[in-house]
Amino acid sequence: MRAVITVIGQDKIGIIYEVSRILAENSINILDISQTIMQDMFTMIMLVNTEKCSKNFKEISDTLGALGDKLGLSIRIQHEDIFNSMHRI
């Protein structure tokens, strides 16, 4: 399954490292990545493939959510369909 991970919050050192470390540990492949500072907020969007991940979606979502809490950021993972269906006809 292809999913979109969004990371939003105060910029600090090591955000990309921490997020990618968890993805690597869970065999989640990063397909695309973009990062910018939007209205003073660190904003990262990743397109990933979860096919080889052994955990179910809720577990990954909870793991990333917990990392977000630890780093003081909002981290979400969502099926890419929700974005495609809203913005593409």
Binding site: T6, I8, I45, R76, F83, H87
Partner: peptide
């Protein structure tokens, strides 16, 4: 690929 603004609009 979806663009960042579209993704952020949905999240918001």
């Amino acid at each position: 690929m979806l663009n960042s603004l579209e993704i952020m609009e949905t999240i918001k």
